[in-house]
Simulated scan of single mutants.
Amino acid sequence: MNQKPVVAAPEYCHFFKTLLVEELELETDFQRLHYGQCAIIGRLVLESKFYRLGNVRVKSLPETLSLPEGTISLLLLGLTIDKTVGQSVAPGSYCIVRGEVILCNVVHPNSRTLTARGVHEKFSSLSHDPASQKEYLSWLRLTHKPAIDLWFIQSIDRAEDLLSRRLEIRGLTVR
């Protein structure tokens, strides 16, 4: 009998884990997407009435390991023009955002959002039907994108330096 190993449900992250825009935007397996709180540094972009957080190029990394600045971006949910004025942030500024990672339906924007935990639970509920599991994951990749349910945003200086230091610290602590 050839069964896939049972993957444990993701645990909610109760601290603002430092992540890169790339780590969320480029993840193709939504069951492995970060579940919970995060802190992300990027450049604020206003695109078609929606705020997004663009990636920052860290020049200290080899070119093969980083994308040019602004190549990809994450949707920021809950950020309005009023909030940007109140927090003194403007499109084009470097920011640190804190919030929760979610999956947003880009085909039907007013649909309920999902989390990695929700994806895992739905996938597990289809365990009796591998074809349905595959179909569900394919549908998700076509209709959903990672986004940040924004709790806080702050303008920062020297984004690349701060990001480099955070990556160095993360490299020293992750083994």
Rank of each mutant, 00 (worst) to 15 (best):
Q3A: 09
K4Q: 11
K4V: 10
K4N: 13
P5V: 10
V6A: 13
A8Q: 01
A9Q: 02
P10Y: 03
E11F: 02
C13R: 07
H14I: 12
H14M: 11
F15R: 03
T18L: 10
E23V: 10
L24F: 13
L26Y: 07
L26T: 14
L26M: 15
E27P: 12
D29G: 10
F30S: 09
Q31H: 10
R32A: 15
R32I: 14
H34P: 07
H34M: 10
Q37R: 06
Q37W: 02
C38Y: 00
C38S: 08
C38R: 00
I40T: 06
R43M: 15
L44H: 00
L46I: 14
S48C: 11
S48Y: 02
F50E: 13
R52C: 14
V56C: 07
V56H: 03
R57V: 11
R57C: 14
R57D: 09
V58Q: 00
V58N: 02
K59M: 01
L61H: 00
L65F: 01
S66L: 00
P68A: 06
G70F: 10
T71Q: 05
S73M: 03
S73F: 00
L74D: 03
L74I: 11
G78Q: 04
L79P: 07
T80G: 05
I81S: 12
I81Q: 10
K83M: 14
V85M: 11
V85A: 13
Q87T: 08
Q87M: 04
Q87F: 01
S88R: 08
S88Q: 13
V89Q: 00
G92S: 04
G92W: 01
S93V: 11
S93E: 12
Y94A: 15
Y94N: 12
C95I: 07
C95M: 05
I96C: 06
I96Q: 02
I96E: 01
V97C: 12
R98V: 10
E100C: 10
I102V: 15
L103R: 02
C104A: 09
V107M: 08
V107G: 04
V107C: 06
H108P: 05
N110M: 04
S111T: 05
S111E: 05
R112E: 13
T113E: 02
L114A: 09
L114K: 05
A116G: 15
A116S: 15
R117M: 15
R117A: 15
V119Q: 03
E121R: 00
K122M: 15
F123I: 08
S125E: 15
L126E: 01
S127E: 08
H128E: 10
D129H: 12
A131K: 09
S132L: 14
S132P: 04
Q133I: 10
K134A: 13
K134D: 07
L137A: 02
L137K: 03
W139A: 09
L140T: 04
R141D: 06
L142I: 09
T143K: 06
P146E: 08
P146D: 09
A147W: 00
I148A: 04
I148N: 03
D149E: 12
W151H: 08
W151Q: 15
